[in-house]
Design a protein around this nucleic acid. Structure first.
Lengths: 349, 349
DNA sequence: AACAGTACAGCAAGCGCTTTCTATACAGAG
DNA sequence: CTCTGTATAGAAAGCGCTTGCTGTACTGTT
């Protein structure tokens, strides 16, 4: 039924070993022989059996990419960039590798399960994107898993995620804290003193770092940090909408809303508009990430641009061993403050 | 170094066969034995070798998902929905399968290459999303590939893509033509007679169908279809921006711009605004797809909502054999016209 | 008490490929 | 003309798992 290496060998009048060598191109084969083999491959429409190769060679051409939510462009952009570098068809590399994108939904359990599945597939590399969950038992379990993967020869890269010490994983961390500091600093510089903050889920590193940066900026300017001005939610539009309503309820005189990310900021904008508040005349809004749609918001969103595609591409290259890992295995990727129409001076109070 | 089935067997004092059976749970094993095996597995931290299983059992737990661009939410949403149904961790199904997401970038060559790669991995199923390329040689090559995959037992599902006759592939096609007809019909009903159309790449089925629907609506209303009012581009914001400028150049009195999709529409909005035109007072704008950000545009976008998540989920279930394929292997998924703020009556001319 | 039936467990033969080691052939060196 | 070196091809031993078939020990029947 299915044609195997042996069939090709028979047709080309050579041994299976030779066919294998022609296909893998890592052993001298006479040009005439190679041609004969290739012809047979073509005629029989032969397709290598991946699992068999992987078993025999003890390697696989699968690369795992873990994301929280592939429907979110934040992850989509990184995944796309990683993919383009791991040398799938059209990629730079010779070897063609397949990207296994795993949607963890932010659940630590699923993250772990996917890691095991990838380990089972003997993945060549694994890239973890997005913030980590900061619950001790899970962090430890993930670290142990990463360590094991690394020991088994799988290259592990963290993209936009803080370093995991002693795991052998390379980390490309986003400077969330610094970005947030700049962003809130910008608002304070404009004159804002009553800023609401919409944070992400409490247990995420990303959430904590951005919030810390925000608070650092407040502290640096001597602005009181009323805990009632911070609301936790999720990284989605809906959260932004609801949290903004809540913030407004708590303090109707808010002059600015700083959101955990751009989607949240968009939700905030919607809530403000529906409350009859103008942006930025009545309330300024700021996001984070600078996703493509942020510039199309009206007014366009002041935010912190994270070089998602660049970081993803770099992570991909490192995962493929095509780029030197940063010294110490850790690099910080900075964001850039993008001042746009959604932030302005506060209304005179 | 790496622990194998045999190691586990030795430690549990059973044969490798028994360990395999415990792990696969498809053969009666005494409870006490099972427990002993599981304990050994745990103690040795054993992880099954995927390629070896796949080879021996001649099946794999990989599912391929082909998308044009995973960074685009249009595909991200479908991919996410498919994924959630193919029974990865947390999914409904027992077997845990990995989704291989392949970014074709819209290139037929890469599509073909990826299909071969998936065939090589003996993927359990393959879901192709997005419009197909309509170039005869490629369409034939893809069809042949799909046929071969299906013959080899891989379930093939087309999601948001027209049927591929005689390939054994199940198709869930979007009613792009009907949606476009409704959309343009809505604009005509509002009184528009000078509508610009920004199409996608000419060779895509999606592009053609949407354009045909648009023209059908024009014809039905007896509105002249000036070919100069159609500009081709890509499915991205930038294309929308440039095409709109071009349309305006060709006919400054345009009262409406119909875009190939929402991203294009956003670009169109930006171009109109920069040209000093108000939406919808001066020019109405319409998109397609109803991606999440469309509602946050100002004014929010009139568009055709495509049930991306639902279609993806269904495709996923069919791919897993968990849902009956539609009769004839073909189903049409309709869109829903969403009338929002970006469309209004034309300025009196 | 002998027999069929049932429930487990093990043996061993692959699954289709890679790769080490070995064999052969010929070219040039001495 | 023999000897060594180089280039290329083949033989065969696995890689780690699954599964059909073959036991073996019971349980329950008549």
């Amino acid at each position: 039924m299915t044609v195997t290496l042996a069939d090709v060998a028979a047709r080309a009048q050579v041994s299976p070993a030779t066919v294998s060598r022609v296909l893998n191109g890592n052993y001298p084969v006479a040009a005439s022989t190679r041609e004969r083999v290739l012809k047979a491959v073509d005629e029989l429409d032969y397709v290598l059996n991946g699992p068999a190769s992987a078993l025999a060679a003890a390697t696989s051409d699968l690369v795992g990419i873990l994301v929280n939510d592939i429907a979110d462009p934040f992850f989509g952009i990184m995944a796309s960039a990683i993919q383009s570098e791991i040398g799938g068809p059209g990629g730079r590399a010779g070897g063609e590798r397949l990207a296994v994108v795993c949607n963890t939904g932010g659940s630590p359990d699923r993250e772990l399960t996917y890691l095991t599945l990838l380990q089972r597939q003997r993945a060549a590399a694994v890239v973890l994107t997005g913030g980590a969950v900061e619950e001790a038992p899970h962090a430890a379990a993930v670290s142990a898993k990463l360590r094991k993967l690394a020991d088994a020869g799988t290259r592990v890269v963290l993209c936009g995620r803080p370093p995991a010490p002693d795991t052998g994983a390379i980390a490309l961390a986003f400077d969330n804290r610094g970005g947030a500091r700049q962003l809130t600093g910008h608002l304070i510089g404009l004159g804002h003193r009553r800023l609401g903050y919409i944070a992400g889920p409490a247990e995420r590193t990303t959430t904590r770092h951005r919030l810390e940066g925000h608070r650092e900026a407040l502290a640096a300017a001597g602005v009181e940090d009323d805990p009632r001005r911070t609301v936790y939610g999720h990284y989605d539009r809906r959260s932004g909408y609801e949290a903004t309503l809540e913030l407004l309820r708590r303090d109707p005189d808010l002059t600015a809303v700083v959101a955990a990310n751009d989607s949240v900021a968009l939700g905030a904008c919607a809530a403000l508009r529906e409350s009859g508040l103008r942006i930025p005349q009545d309330v300024s809004v700021a996001g984070f990430d600078d996703l493509p749609f942020s510039i199309d918001a009206v007014p366009s969103l002041t935010t912190v641009r994270l070089p998602l595609a660049e970081a993803g591409a770099r992570a991909g290259r490192i995962a493929m061993g095509r780029e030197e890992p940063p010294p110490g295995g850790i690099a910080t990727v900075r964001g850039e403050l993008m001042v746009r129409g959604s932030s302005g001076v506060p209304r005179s109070s």
